[in-house]
Design a protein around this nucleic acid. Structure first.
Length: 314
RNA sequence: GGACGGGUGGGUGAGUGGCUAAAACCAGCAGACUGUAAAUCUGCCGCUCCUUGCGGGCUACGGAGGUUCGAAUCCUCCCCCGUCCA
């Protein structure tokens, strides 16, 4: 028991104040931040992914940010690997690791592990995607039915992305997805995990999101996008799929005012927040706090809860 | 004052007598998701009742009347909005 290190997780939808709370707790408890966010691992995509500028970080080290270049593809497996390393480093320094998590899949990959499935194969995927273009998504679903009936029953006929992954696993591993999943996965060992969830009221969260998008624009998001294009980041680079980036890029390319797409960006962000909420709802053992992470009451409550949790020596 | 065009569910917008609680899209809500996850996908979406059924009731297409077995759809009057002529 006393050998177990503590890991504090702060989870919640975008704009709920995870970073602010994380920094506050890190200061109070001697911690460092581990970011669990699929977008912040990309370098050069800063404003739109809400990376806190150094001034905001109060000297608290932030890990798992700016790991790769825009052209690279990142995965949950890769994240898990890097997060385990980062976690170990923080622990070794005797600091409290505080994970601020907005990407549910990555959080789960770290805490619960991933099944022993093959990594993605770009060649196979290109091939399968070509099939979809030629014959439609249903064709691919029928193919999956023949290869892995169980998976086909679970995946919607038009969910091409998940169908491709299932076929990929079946072909590369020679086994059905279900079989691989049933053989288990190994979660995070050696840590006592304490989870704090932020769940501000929906209407206030949405208002905050709208305001934050405006603030991002005011902070020079458009120039950031312009620079990315000038740097030669290809239009199909993964991070251009992140909310707002391709909208702004297209506006710039067409010589239209970026303000036109602000409403659309706010809306996409709200919908994204909703999906995060749905995901986190079923996360187990979360101590939910009904406000924003920079709300003094929430900070007090979070500190109190963190101090009570087992294994935390402060 | 006159001539046309139009007023449909939160929005846009189809629908010209029954197959219409009303297409489609958007928004919203709910959900799925073990290697692209800020991705990808699914369901619901007037109110209400229950014996949850291709079930019942109620309300609904600017307003009020009328025609009809039956009207968002036809007729009359009225009220708004747009364009044009005076």
């Amino acid at each position: 028991m006393s050998d177990l290190a503590q890991l504090l997780v702060i989870l919640g939808p975008t704009a709920s104040g995870k970073s602010a709370l994380g920094i506050e707790l890190a200061q109070q408890l001697g911690g460092e931040i581990l970011v669990c966010d699929s977008t912040q691992v990309y370098r050069h995509f800063d404003i739109g992914t809400a990376k806190g500028p150094p001034a905001q970080q109060q000297g608290i080290p932030h890990h798992l940010v700016d790991l790769i270049e825009p052209q690279e593809v990142f995965t949950a497996g890769e994240y898990r690997q890097r997060a385990l390393d980062a976690l170990e480093n923080v622990r070794r320094r005797g600091k409290l690791p505080i994970l601020t998590a907005g990407t549910g899949l990555y959080l789960r990959a770290l805490l619960e592990g991933l099944a022993d499935a093959p990594t993605r194969s770009e060649e196979l995927r290109d091939h399968l995607r070509a099939k979809v273009r030629a014959r439609g998504p249903e064709h691919l679903h029928r193919l999956l039915s023949r290869l892995d009936r169980e998976a086909a029953g679970r995946i919607a006929p038009r969910d091409t992305q998940k169908i491709i992954r299932a076929i990929e696993i079946r072909i590369l591993a020679g086994k059905a997805v279900g079989e691989i999943h049933r053989s288990g996965r190994s979660g995070l060992a050696g840590y006592t995990v304490t989870k704090i969830g932020l769940s501000p009221p929906r209407d206030r969260l949405y208002a905050k999101i709208d305001a934050r998008v405006n603030a991002m624009i005011a902070a020079g998001w458009v120039d950031e996008v312009r620079t990315l294009v000038e740097m030669g980041v290809p239009a199909d680079a993964k991070p251009f799929q992140f909310i707002g980036y391709s909208d702004l890029r297209d506006q710039i390319a067409n010589g239209r005012p970026p303000g036109e797409v602000v409403g659309k960006i706010q809306q996409s962000t709200r919908r994204f927040a909703k999906r995060q909420i749905t995901w986190f709802r079923k996360e187990r053992d979360v101590h939910w706090l009904p406000g924003f992470g920079d709300d003094p009451d929430v900070i007090v409550a979070a500190l109190q809860f963190a101090r009570l949790s087992p294994g935390l020596k402060i």
